[in-house]
Amino acid sequence: MSFNKKLNTGDFAILAEMEPPKGVNVSKMVENAAKVKGQVDAFVVPEMSNAVMRMSSLGGAMLLQSEGMETVMQVCCRDRNRLALQADILAANSCGIKSIMAVTGEDPSFGDHHQAASVYDIQLTELLEAVQMLQKGRDMAGIELDGAPDFQVGSVVNAGLKGDNLEAELEEMNKKIDAGTGFFITPPIFDIGSIETFMKHAEQKNAKIIPTVLLLKSVGMARYMSRNLEHVHIPDDLIKRIQKAPDKTRECIAIAKEMIDILRKEGFSGAFISTLGWEQRLPEIIGSKEVYG
C-alpha cells in the first residue's frame, strides 16, 4: 500500500531516510533502498541536511522513483527563493513524486560551505501555504497553472519541547495544519512518555504524527545526544543497556526495532527511521526478504 493510502486509512506507515550521495555515484543509495523496497512505504530524501552539500532531494527522489520506490521529497527554505521552490515542486509532481515535506533548513554555518549565503525568501508556513495554493491551481503570484500538482504534504514538529517553548511550537503546528500539513515528523524519540503533553494536543487536532526512530550507533552517541540535545530525551536505562551489551551495534538495532513496535502499538501514524549514513542496516531494523526470507 502506498504511503498516502496508509495515511488516509490509518495504517502504520514505515518511512526511511535515504541520503543522496555527495557525488554522482548513486549505486549505494539505490542498492540500500532496493533492499527494503517492499518494507518501506516511502523513502524520505533529505535536502542537504545539516547544510552539507550533496545531491538534491529532487534528484535523489526522482532516481528512487524511477526504480519503482515511493519517495517524500524535502523542500527547504534555506537554499531557494519562491521561484525555485515552486519550480521544483511542479517538477517533482510531474515526475511522479506524490509526497513532499517542507523544512526550514539549518544555517550554512552548520555545514561544509560556511561562506554560503542563505536565502529564506519565504518561511516554512508560507511555503506550506504556497504548496496549498499550487494544489489549487495557482502560483504564489496568483497566476493560473496549466495543471495543478497533487501532494500529501508533511512538515516537522518539535514534539520534545517543554513549557513555553512547547506552547509556541503547538501554535506553530496549528498554523501548519491550517496551511494544509497532512503529517508531521518529530525529532528522535526514545521514550514516548517524554512527548505525552505534545501528543494530547496532537490527538485533539487529529494530527498525523510520525516520530523519528534514530538508530543509535554507540554509547558515546547516546550520551552526547542526551547531554547536548535539550529536547531529545534518552533514558539513562537505555544508555546503560547499550553499555552492558556485548554487541553494541546489535543492541542499538534492537532498540530501534522495539521503538517501531511501541509506536505501532501506541497508534502513531508511522515511524520515520533515520540511520545517519547506516542505510545498509535498514534490513536488520525493518526486515527484508534477504534477512527474514
Binding site: D107, P108, S109, H114, Q115, A116, A117, S118
Partner: peptide, 9 residues
C-alpha cells in the same frame, strides 16, 4: 564569503 554578511546570523 557571505558569512560576514547576514548569512552568518
Amino acid at each position: 564569503d557571505w558569512s560576514t554578511d547576514r548569512a552568518g546570523g
